[in-house]
Simulated assay, not measured.
Amino acid sequence: MIESRKPTRVRRLNAEAVAAGHHIIGPAGTEAAEVVETVIETDDYGTPAVVVATLDSGQTLRIATGSQVQVAVDEREVAAGSIPAQDGTPEAVIAHVVSVHPESEHLQGIAERLTRGMNFKSGSNLQDVHDLALSLLVDFADAANARRVCDLLTELPFDGNFGRWKWIEGALALASYLAFDDGDADRADAYSASLRTADDAETDPLKAKLAAAVRQRQLNAPNLYDPEINRAAAAGDTKAEKDWRVVRLTVLLYLRSHGGSETLTADELARRIHNELVAIRAL
């Protein structure tokens, strides 16, 4: 008896997000083949240029960075990984975006916590939403869903609680970059303006002046965690290196949302963010 093929659906994936285990459809629309390894090659200037995917057949596919490919997803896995939530709610948004990535236990774990009922006054819930959006971009190059998740937080006002605000601020910085990268400059500027509302929260003129001076110093000389990243790389600890690079990425996003600084221009930050994303995905 001939075994029937698994029901599948096709979704698009950024080249940098292709990883071992994905079933990629060839350029001629050929049957999906499993990827067993990926390597990112750079051009002569050190900029990531091509993703080389090795298939289970031994053949390789060369895919330009920034482009997209089609991968096959088992619909039964999607159904098994789906999380019930009432339509039109933040929980429904979370359930939808994680259903696109049923293979990720990390995303499913975050979604399971959030879909029990989101509390926007809870710092841990805000952190989960922020981390979900960041993971969608970093690990899956899923910019569209990352932005949808960010928008669960981007309308929340600054209420004076910096513990909660840092996660909203992070979502605004990420959303600003995603809008900028998508060519929507006005939307990117709006997110950045919302992020900076906390900068102007101090009403005492002297305290506000001192806070502005401290903030400018932080923008001009940010901690980009070079020693930590270099130590992890030298030790071959890819998990630690990735964790520190993700922290550095959030700093770069924050700097870009402020329009850069006296030492790092907005264009330079955009370039570094792109390269950091590629470096993280290569680990």
Rank of each mutant, 00 (worst) to 15 (best):
residue 8 T to V: 14
residue 8 T to S: 13
residue 13 L to W: 09
residue 13 L to E: 14
residue 16 E to I: 15
residue 17 A to L: 15
residue 17 A to E: 12
residue 17 A to H: 10
residue 17 A to N: 07
residue 18 V to L: 15
residue 21 G to I: 15
residue 22 H to E: 10
residue 24 I to F: 11
residue 25 I to M: 14
residue 26 G to V: 11
residue 26 G to K: 15
residue 28 A to T: 07
residue 29 G to E: 11
residue 30 T to R: 11
residue 30 T to Y: 02
residue 33 A to N: 13
residue 35 V to S: 13
residue 38 T to F: 10
residue 39 V to D: 01
residue 39 V to H: 06
residue 41 E to A: 13
residue 43 D to Q: 12
residue 43 D to M: 12
residue 44 D to L: 15
residue 44 D to E: 09
residue 45 Y to A: 15
residue 46 G to H: 07
residue 47 T to L: 10
residue 47 T to S: 10
residue 49 A to N: 12
residue 49 A to C: 04
residue 49 A to D: 15
residue 50 V to T: 13
residue 51 V to Y: 06
residue 51 V to D: 07
residue 51 V to W: 03
residue 53 A to N: 04
residue 54 T to S: 08
residue 55 L to Q: 08
residue 58 G to D: 04
residue 59 Q to M: 12
residue 60 T to L: 02
residue 60 T to C: 09
residue 61 L to T: 00
residue 62 R to F: 06
residue 63 I to L: 02
residue 65 T to N: 03
residue 67 S to L: 02
residue 67 S to V: 02
residue 67 S to W: 00
residue 73 V to T: 10
residue 73 V to A: 00
residue 75 E to S: 10
residue 77 E to D: 05
residue 79 A to K: 06
residue 79 A to E: 12
residue 80 A to H: 05
residue 81 G to K: 00
residue 82 S to K: 04
residue 86 Q to K: 04
residue 88 G to L: 12
residue 88 G to C: 03
residue 92 A to K: 11
residue 94 I to S: 09
residue 95 A to P: 10
residue 98 V to P: 04
residue 98 V to N: 03
residue 99 S to Q: 12
residue 101 H to M: 04
residue 107 L to N: 08
residue 109 G to Q: 07
residue 111 A to R: 01
residue 112 E to P: 01
residue 114 L to I: 13
residue 115 T to G: 05
residue 115 T to Y: 00
residue 116 R to L: 09
residue 117 G to M: 05
residue 117 G to H: 08
residue 121 K to V: 04
residue 123 G to E: 09
